[in-house]
Write a protein that binds this DNA or RNA. Structure first.
Length: 346
RNA sequence: GCCGAGAUAGCUCAGUUCGGUAGAGCAGUGGACUGAAAAUCCAUGUGUCCCGAGUUCAAUUCUCGGUCUCGGCA
């Protein structure tokens, strides 16, 4: 019953918000001086884009997309990128900032996002972080300090080859350099073992001590969108069918024709990678569609581990409630400290 | 109508060779995550083994009867 629980959380927040004024005045003043930031989070296909645009229009805001796949140009349909019409309704950032053969990782995202946030705020406009890439959103809102170690493809390839032969040796090597690593990395996850080793080798410092965070200088309101799981799956499935109808296959063909390969991170995303067996003659289009749907369900489940229904920092709202927009608008208004009358007259 | 094959987890099926109440893949569910993150990795399988009767200490497994499904022939 995640939906009901979430709904209750939502109500609890409205009721409880008055309490904040009573606590530690100095702290409140300090917080008040920080510029506001709104984040709209939640699983894929739940309606974050639409709500983001609605809020941006209502509050003179600009949208910062926290979506690891919408960075890439020529990938419109499969990434469910906001359409041209949608983007005309409010300024959008961090969409179409790279070609598919480039790799925009966490660190680049954070750099771009922090700068963009600053600029939006400097313009006197309200920044809205809208996105479903859990790691990126959390990193941005929690102020993760990512170790300054760019990926080294050669080193990674070498370590991966080594791990293929003797995974334990590679793991032991990492543990020697960083004894704390078993607390947060699974030895069987070669990808993460290799990265940790990469950082430790290049910096000479344990990976674990380089993972720091400094809270960003904003007063943040997190609005979470949720919905009954089954209904959400149905909605996501329908969106996949709509993507196919909109020409997803042609979009993939076009990317391949331009020489973009399956090994690229951009092509590893939902709605793209699943076409690989199809082009290898090993799967029908029907198989591909089903695969995309199942993988999307899996993704939704994993997104909830980044955005938890019991996270008190997130104000969860039912995405399919008829009063979602007024409710969200009210939440933002109260966060900004704007009296009702100001908005009504505007 | 006849002949054959089958009926086992939500789905597709394996299996019980020599009877001791069952297991894979997919689906579903939970989790990890600090420069690939829509990636990568981990954990999680009690279901009238179609129904009835018989044999037996014991049947999902053997026997008989029935029901249904799918082929083939009429």
């Amino acid at each position: 019953m995640p939906s009901l629980e979430a709904y209750v959380t939502c109500l609890a927040f409205e009721v409880g918000s008055g309490r904040i004024a009573g606590v530690a005045n100095r702290h409140v003043h300090q917080q008040r001086s920080l510029p506001p930031l709104i984040a709209v989070v939640g699983p894929t296909a739940i309606g974050k884009t639409a709500l983001g645009i609605h809020l941006a229009r209502a509050f003179d805001g600009e949208i910062l997309s926290a979506d690891s796949r919408q960075f890439y140009r020529r990938m419109e349909i499969g990434t469910a990128k906001p359409t041209r019409e949608e983007r005309e309704q409010a300024p959008h950032h961090l969409i179409d900032v790279a070609d598919p053969d480039e790799t925009v990782g966490l660190a680049q995202f954070l750099r771009l996002a922090r700068r963009t946030l600053q600029q939006i705020t400097a313009r006197g406009r309200l920044p809205l972080v809208v996105g479903g890439t859990g790691q990126y959103v959390r990193a941005l809102l929690e102020g993760w300090q990512v170790p300054e170690v760019p990926p080294d493809p050669d080193l990674r390839a070498r370590l991966e080859r080594e791990a293929e032969g003797d995974p334990d040796a590679v793991w032991q090597r990492l543990v020697t350099l960083d004894p704390a690593v078993p607390d947060f990395i699974d030895p069987r996850n070669v990808r993460r073992v290799v990265r940790a080793l990469e950082v430790s080798l290049k910096t000479g410092q344990p990976f674990s001590v380089l993972r720091r965070r400094t809270p960003p200088p904003y007063r943040i309101l997190r609005i979470g969108l949720t919905m009954d799981r089954e209904a959400l799956y149905a909605r996501a499935d329908a969106r996949v069918d709509a993507m196919i109808a909109a020409g997803l296959l042609d979009e993939v063909k076009d990317l391949l024709a331009r020489g973009y390969g399956w090994e690229l991170p951009a092509l590893s995303g939902l709605g793209y990678a699943q076409f690989r067996p199809f082009f290898a003659g090993q799967a029908s289009l029907t198989d591909v569609i089903e695969r995309i749907k199942f993988d999307t369900h899996d993704f939704i489940r994993r997104q909830y581990t980044w955005f938890r229904l019991n996270d008190p920092a997130i104000r969860w709202c039912q995405a399919d409630a008829p009063d979602l927009q007024p409710r969200a608008t009210e939440a933002v208004r109260s966060h900004l400290g704007i009296p009702d009358t100001d908005l009504d007259s505007a």
